[in-house]
Design a protein around this nucleic acid. Structure first.
Lengths: 260, 260
DNA sequence: ATCTATTCCGTAAATTTTACACATTAGAAT
DNA sequence: ATTCTAATGTGTAAAATTTACGGAATAGAT
């Protein structure tokens, strides 16, 4: 648990360590129970659900900051992480009321409120991450005391402009899936065809013919069939597949180019 | 011309009007002489070429700021303007030397240098704009005293990390052209098939079969043939075309979706 | 041995993309 | 008027890709 002193110090002096006016919001996608989910945190001060986020240290490269922020929440490193948009159209994301609630909650002196760096206008750089749900261990930060993995089709009202952020992350991911291989980071190392098929259907929110789908992935050389099978109860055992790392990485870099 | 006082005031007090630590860099694409060009400005202080840029006013929505910055330089409003990346990996874009040159050039007291907001670490949000070259009237700002339209295939060494910014803008534009119609903002209202054909070839940096190309645009319903022709000297007169605004806008929103 | 639920596979039709060459035309020159 | 030049405009066949679609095989439970 984080101490009261630490919180107070962060609020009062955080601007010496972090760049003010800019934050990072992360949309962390995981796949579980045949649902595409995102990680939501319950913010103590504001008492509501929001995205994991954080600030950029004064001498820290931007990409590293995003990586650190996701790592601190999930325990994962070396993940698929991509900038997708900067949100800054509403000059002020915090209402006076929410600031008051926050300072009361943390028992901060009223004078902290005035012009405090935390409560000034802050643009937010959106990153999304694709993670292997089963490998995540969620850790709370200063301002959050609970978490949930929430089906993207069923997102509640979030704090600030986080619903917009999620929306934009989803549309970016859906567009991207047509041009880049997705799955390496969302699936375990070995998976079955029906599994990756359902993943794609889930992300795109529409049905894909299973025969044509697997044909496509195999033709592109993105996955390869293994000799092993998985046992799934009283049904035919599906074969296991894994990604062809080289072809996958190549497609990641080049994109899967369609024609003009 | 901008007065010395104004510059000094901007350097000393700009942080009261603008958000520190964040700027906008704009890559303004125009098409002329069968070349894709970008607008470069010569920075007085640093004596080198760089991109048009600016800061975000404290209460100004982000998109508006980008729009204003491009408008101030080009005179154009209501243009195609798109965020494409945030640059912030190198914590410091300015060297001590360039800062000294700058302050000397503008005859700023040495004490201005120390911890001045302008010289602190600044992330930069990249926007690119597509403009009708012939409609642009370039206006200088505080820090720049000359401009040029520079062929994208022949960009000199630019200030700061602006070469990276241009590079990324170009790759984004090239990717986008496969999924969204481009041209409405780069071409005059009426244009010939060879003109738009050359535009696409120029942007993509490769040849496109003219028959297949026009077939595609017409099939997609993005352009329509007019009854008029243009006179181009001692050659067959090409027909004029114009964009089908509805289909064009629809494609802009939806993207030209390819299959899975 | 039977049943259930799931995986696995292949082919034909439709569509899209690619490749490719020559007749037409406006104005300039003669 | 004729000729010449340099550019525009157009169609078709082959190849590749995408789509649509149904039935046999299998593992485990009963």
């Amino acid at each position: 648990m984080i101490s009261q002193e630490e919180v107070t110090d962060f609020v009062k002096n955080g601007h010496q360590h972090y760049l003010p006016h800019i934050s990072i919001d992360s949309v962390i996608f995981g796949y579980h129970d045949q649902q595409l989910k995102i990680l939501l945190l319950n913010w103590i001060g504001y008492n509501g659900w929001g995205l994991p986020g954080g600030f950029i240290q004064r001498r820290e490269p931007l990409g590293q900051a995003a990586n650190r922020i996701v790592r601190e929440r999930t325990g994962l490193d070396d993940l698929f992480l991509q900038q997708f948009y900067v949100f800054g159209d509403s000059p002020y994301r915090l209402t006076e009321r929410s600031i008051r609630e926050f300072t009361e909650k943390f028992d901060l002196a009223a004078d902290v409120e005035e012009g405090n760096w935390l409560f000034e206008r802050t643009l937010s750089i959106g990153y999304f991450a694709l993670v292997d749900y089963s490998k995540v261990t969620v850790t709370s930060d200063f301002f959050t005391d609970a978490h949930q993995w929430c089906d993207v089709n069923n997102i509640p009202d979030l704090l600030f402009d986080h619903n917009d952020v999620v929306e934009k992350a989803l549309t970016t991911l859906r567009q991207q899936i047509y041009h880049q291989p997705i799955g390496y980071n969302l699936l375990p190392e070995k998976f079955t065809l029906p599994e990756i098929h359902r993943l794609y259907e889930t992300i795109l929110g529409k049905e894909l013919d299973p025969r044509n789908f697997s044909k496509k992935l195999l033709t592109l050389g993105l996955i390869k069939k293994l000799d092993e099978q998985r046992s799934i109860g009283p049904h035919r055992s599906p074969y296991l597949y894994q990604f062809e790392k080289e072809a996958y990485d190549f497609a990641l870099r080049q994109g899967i180019v369609h024609t003009y």
